[in-house]
Structures are given as C-alpha cells and as structure tokens.
Amino acid sequence: MPFCNKNLTPLQRRSMQRMGSVLLLTVLTNLTNPHFPNVFFDLFPGLLRFLSSHQDAHNGLSSALLVGSLSAISLLPVLLGVWVAANYLKAEPDEFIRALVIRALLWGFAVTMAGDAIVGVLMTYYSRPFPISLLNADLFFASTGIAFRLVQRSYR
C-alpha cells in the first residue's frame, strides 16, 4: 500500500518530512495573537512583551509595520506548503498516485474552507478570535490525510 511508512518512496518520504516541517512552522509563526500558545513566546519572552505592548485592547496591533511583518511571517508556511506539494506532484512518477494525491488535496481544501466558514460564524457569534491559522493547518493536514485513505480505499 503506498504511503505506508515501510513502502514510501524516497520522494514521498522526503515530501512528507517537508510537510511536517511546514506544519511545525505554522505553529511557530502563529504570532498573530499573544494569547495563543507559542514556543517562540517561551523562548523569547521579550517578543511577547513587545507584541503585547503594541496591542490595543479594541483595535488590535497599533503599528502598521508590525501588522505587515506578522502577516508576511504567517504567509511563509502557506507558501512553503504549496511549494512542497507542487514539487512532489511534479516529481511523482506514478500518475495514479498523483491523481489520488490531487483528489485528496482538493478534499483537504474543501474541508478547510468549510471549517473556515464555520469558525467565521462562531467568531462572530461569540465575539472572540480563534487561533484560525492553527485550525486551518490542522484541518487541512488531517482532512487531506483522511481523504487520501478514503480515495485510496475506493480503488481497492
């Protein structure tokens, strides 16, 4: 069975390791809200103090430059994730596996967008922010993984 640990090709293994790193980077770059847990805040307490000092209780971060920088940082894992997936799909020699992965990725996107819509409603209803970037990454990776298994099973 492809994508079982023992049967992974070097390309698949490398791509999965890279995706794991992207997931970790998503967690690390979740600096949008100082109230969410982040390893960087534990390692660099000054960063947390800096962000908190620039945060207004009602209007969020007060510095436009800081907002821009944080947005750029949180963009990194998304771009890297797309780069890893694109490179894998370009290099995968087995067209059947490529078709399965594309279908699984599409399901992953669909579930993530549906999750975003639900979280949007919940955030409005409860008037408080959720760690949406973490939720997106988790949802996307989990739903893509499950979708891959289900799509693969449909071909047995």
Binding site: M1, D94, E95, F96, I97
Partner: peptide
C-alpha cells in the same frame, strides 16, 4: 515504474 495499485486500477478499468 509505477505502483501495484496503479496496475490494479488500470486492469479493473477504474483508471
């Protein structure tokens, strides 16, 4: 140079 699953899917006409 493909997976066994690919051969199976082609043989059964599903791919």
């Amino acid at each position: 140079g493909v997976s066994r699953q690919s051969v199976n899917a082609i043989e059964t006409g599903r791919f």
